[in-house]
Design a protein around this nucleic acid. Structure first.
Lengths: 179, 179
DNA sequence: GTTAGGTGATTCAAATTTGAACGCGCCATT
DNA sequence: AATGGCGCGTTCAAATTTGAATCACCTAAC
């Protein structure tokens, strides 16, 4: 391990396109969600994840892991959304430490109103711009990369900075209004 | 335009892989940069962009645009980095309003130390996980998506929330230590 | 039964980000 | 040479994020 293997032109294009596209797209999505529904991107994702979960509820840690967010950050956001009546906290009888975030009917209703426009924008700005081959490449290539990073980075170094290693059912986004 | 065209399974996989991979990857990169060099991801990108610019300097607005960041956010970060001696501000003689952010020798030196590990990680966690075809698909597909979003979103809606429309040379990452 | 080791979630202060408002200099019209 | 429209960078308060404690609780070994 001496001289670094720099990125060639195409790899560089891929890398900048990846980060730039993400930043640009996320900006659009957030803007739209905020303007039309007063939701942040993270809040939308929380609603979406919960909507696709059994009984529309998920434990804080699972949710944090699925969203690739810190636990404390999630605590904050769930607090905000609870104030807004979009979610509710429920403690687990079997494990007194655990807390479930539960999607309320109101939260579900809001998600149902927000989802069409959101998905529409994702489609318009990303999916429909890509060829079917490119869509498959994203799904396969980035899926594989995600899987490896979520598991264990070759040598060491924990991802979440909290003590969590993130295991469980993985990113198997269910059928609902997620995405 | 009535019923939403939802994402099919593969499109959904692509979309979640895209966001998840980005979040995971960015987390790794930030962690490493912070631990080894005390840099945030944004700060690294600022150094990289400046290093690849003519005379190692860029106007605040250009830089903000290239980074897909808000102007005020950049003002803050440049302030931090100036304190740390990594960049310097220079005012433009011909246009008194304009401010250039200039990479200092110290900033350049830090970038040169940080770049190998950073690029190495990008390669290990993303590039080398992908097939050459997938790399090309990212470059082409996401490049096209970025281009469209940077330009004008079909109908309306400004991206940067500031008054900026972001024009100029576009994301043509120069030869240096960027990426 | 108790204790050591973790895990799950929250708390807290500090750092950062956001977006609107501001001040100022450029420039095309009058 | 005045005037108004604008683009540029900064400022400011509020919202959010971060990461290191902290507290409570479960679990397995003593």
């Amino acid at each position: 391990m001496g001289h670094t293997r720099w990125l060639n032109e195409e790899e560089k294009r891929a890398w900048t396109a990846f980060t730039t596209a993400h930043a640009l797209l996320y900006r659009h999505l957030e803007q739209r969600l905020k303007r039309d529904f007063g939701l942040s991107g993270l809040q939308y994702e929380i609603l979406a994840r919960l909507s696709g979960a059994p009984d529309r509820e998920l434990r804080m840690a699972e949710l944090a892991c699925a969203l690739v967010n810190s636990k404390s950050g999630l605590t904050y956001q769930i607090g905000q959304m609870e104030k807004a009546g979009l979610v509710r906290r429920r403690s687990c009888p079997s494990d007194e430490r655990a807390v479930y975030a539960v999607l309320t009917d109101e939260g579900m209703a809001l998600l149902e109103r927000a989802a069409p426009g959101h998905v529409g924008l994702v489609r318009e700005l990303l999916i429909d711009v890509l060829t079917p081959d490119q869509v498959r490449a994203l799904a396969d290539g980035l899926g594989e990369a995600s899987r490896r990073m979520a598991a264990g980075p070759g040598e060491a170094s924990p991802p979440v900075a909290d003590g969590t290693t993130c295991s469980g059912p993985g990113p198997e986004v269910a059928a609902g209004l997620d995405a």
